[in-house]
């Protein structure tokens, strides 16, 4: 089979299929990770001491262990709990124990969202801490409640400061979505590996895959720069 023919009929259709799966993993993982990051970051900054300690522990665990290990734990490790439950309490607990058997897709999104959330929370926490205490005092002096002060004053200002860091984390997420192939997901890298092994054309397959990732990252970078420009504050380099 000629090279062009291989690209046209085999490689690109397979990679396009893998791309769809990758995007289906990346988008919910990024949204969930960001939402988790906001909640955890806000909780660690403004929460009561017990909550702060709990959330610090979450961040320490998910930042301190390799993502690959976390992913394998969710997919291969977690079902052990359901096996144990069924052995201990009988098949009657099956509806409950089945919750510990995650599909490859669910395990991937769970692992990526939880890991991303831990990193995002650091960016959010730093951004909240960078907002001057004076702005908090001014809002309180005007009669804002603590909740209003956070959502109306601190959060919008902090979001602008957190955006570059959070965007960076989303770019990392695009790349580490390739780990999903370890749990049998046929995403971009999984598809490339499949075709490369089948046709022994490793160089072309992985080069083409790298180009797909580069395109995804370029698109994300462009969208993030656009968002940063839209949210920039005239005259204030620290918020632009």
């Amino acid at each position: 089979m000629g090279t062009l023919e291989f690209y046209r009929t085999i490689l690109f259709p397979a990679l396009n299929q893998g791309l769809r799966v990758s995007v289906a993993i990346i988008i919910p993982s990024a949204i969930l990770g960001l939402a988790l990051g906001v909640l955890v970051g806000a909780g660690r900054t403004l929460g009561k001491p017990w909550l702060t300690r709990l959330l610090d522990a979450y961040v320490a665990v998910f930042r301190g262990t390799p993502l690959l290990v976390q992913l394998m734990m969710w997919f291969y490790g977690l079902p052990t709990i359901s096996v144990f439950l069924e052995a201990r309490f009988g098949p009657g607990v099956r509806p409950f124990s089945d919750a510990f058997r995650l599909s490859p897709y669910a395990a991937s999104v769970t692992a990526f969202a939880l890991c991303s959330g831990a990193y995002q929370s650091e960016y959010i926490r730093g951004a909240i801490l960078s907002i001057k205490r004076g702005q908090f005092l001014a809002a309180q002096a005007l009669g804002f409640t603590r909740g209003q002060t956070f959502w109306r004053i601190t959060a919008p200002a902090a979001a602008r400061r957190a955006l570059p860091g959070c965007g960076n984390e989303i770019i990392y997420l695009i790349k580490y979505s390739s780990l999903a192939m370890i749990v049998t997901m046929s995403e971009l890298t999984g598809k490339a590996k499949e075709i490369a092994s089948l046709y022994f054309r490793h160089l072309e397959c992985y080069l083409a895959t790298a180009c797909y990732y580069l395109a995804l990252v370029t698109l994300a970078t462009w969208l993030l720069s656009y968002a940063e420009k839209r949210l920039s504050i005239p005259g204030d380099p620290s918020l632009s």
Binding site: K132, G134, Q135, L137, A138, A139, Q140, A141, L142, G143, F144, T145, I153, P156, A157, R160, I233, D236, S238, L239
Partner: peptide, 24 residues
């Protein structure tokens, strides 16, 4: 109460030496 303290604060204007305007 905490809610009424917010109402109380509304009745007293505060001007800070560092202005404390909302930058955004």
């Amino acid at each position: 109460s905490r809610k009424n303290i917010c109402l109380f604060r509304r009745e007293i204007g505060m001007i800070f030496q560092d202005f404390n305007l909302f930058d955004h």
